[in-house]
Design a protein around this nucleic acid. Structure first.
Lengths: 153, 153
DNA sequence: CTTGACCTTGTACCTCACTCCACAGTTTAT
DNA sequence: ATAAACTGTGGAGTGAGGTACAAGGTCAAG
């Protein structure tokens, strides 16, 4: 019994690289469909569910909330019979992604410009040691005092 | 008294577009420096703090955690006396951003391909109505059953 | 026929990033 | 001079996204 009927929750978790409980959680919030069950109540998943979870994780790491991802999935699933509304929403998602890419690019520029500035200044051995030690500790103690501005009250 | 000594917390919040309490929270977790205080204890901020908060918000919307942002800021601040370690870490951040951009681009392709597929299929008025109504409700009820696979247990 | 590794359920708990609250003092506007 | 609109504090509460746990059932191997 149970030879080839589907993947168990643990198998799916291992293959998709998520916690076992995460799968149950996704099911609870409607992000994954209720799967088939064995007679004894075990969840039995078709292999596609792995790719499905990977999609969720990818979208999530790209800044979409589980709620948005649920919407995207609804859009895709309902795609069997498309309509204007679906296309419109999906188009909006694309615009959003484009915006995000543009912002990231800009942010990248900001950091890169700063890095370049750093490169142009040669290492000063004296202060370097302290500064690096400070970064290494990396605790909660940035002071970040306004580099040159007195005048308060 | 208090004419021009600095911005009050509420002013900063309004200008930066965040909740007043968020500023105090950022200070608590070391993301913003403890500001000067008026004799009566009011926080007095230099105008730069607004840009600083905007930077945090931007980075955050791009998928960085407050903890990561704190690290980036530490890097920038310590930049007055740069060292190899700082440059290395900042370089790593840049690589990370590049990776994120690449992933977003890929994801965009995925959705766009799907959308294109939708476009090619003409609206079928019959099923459309139901599907769109379903999306409109957009509750917690996607069923998303494997579109064509029986064979369980 | 028991052991160990799986599975079930509900519920409690955790971190992150806020956000709100009560109670008290300060500043400004009328 | 008094009300309105700010500010301060510590601490509790919220919502998203999980994770952990206890008590029990199931299944393949030895």
């Amino acid at each position: 019994m149970m030879k080839d009927a589907g993947l168990l929750r643990g198998d799916v978790a291992r293959r998709a690289g998520v916690h076992r409980e995460t799968i149950r959680y996704y099911e609870r919030i409607g992000l994954l469909p209720r799967p088939a069950r064995s007679r004894s109540g075990y969840r039995l998943y078709p292999p596609e569910v792995v790719a499905h979870i990977e999609f969720i994780k990818r979208a999530q790491s790209l800044g979409f909330s589980l709620d948005e991802i649920r919407q995207i999935i609804q859009l895709s699933r309902s795609g069997r019979s498309p309509c204007a509304r679906v296309r419109q929403l999906l188009g909006a998602k694309l615009k959003e992604i484009d915006r995000r890419i543009a912002e990231l690019t800009e942010f990248r520029q900001e950091l890169a410009a700063f890095l370049e500035e750093l490169e142009s200044v040669p290492d000063q051995v004296d202060s370097s040691a302290q500064v690096c030690a400070l970064i290494e500790r990396s605790s909660i103690n940035i002071t970040m005092k306004p580099k040159s501005s007195g005048r308060r009250e």
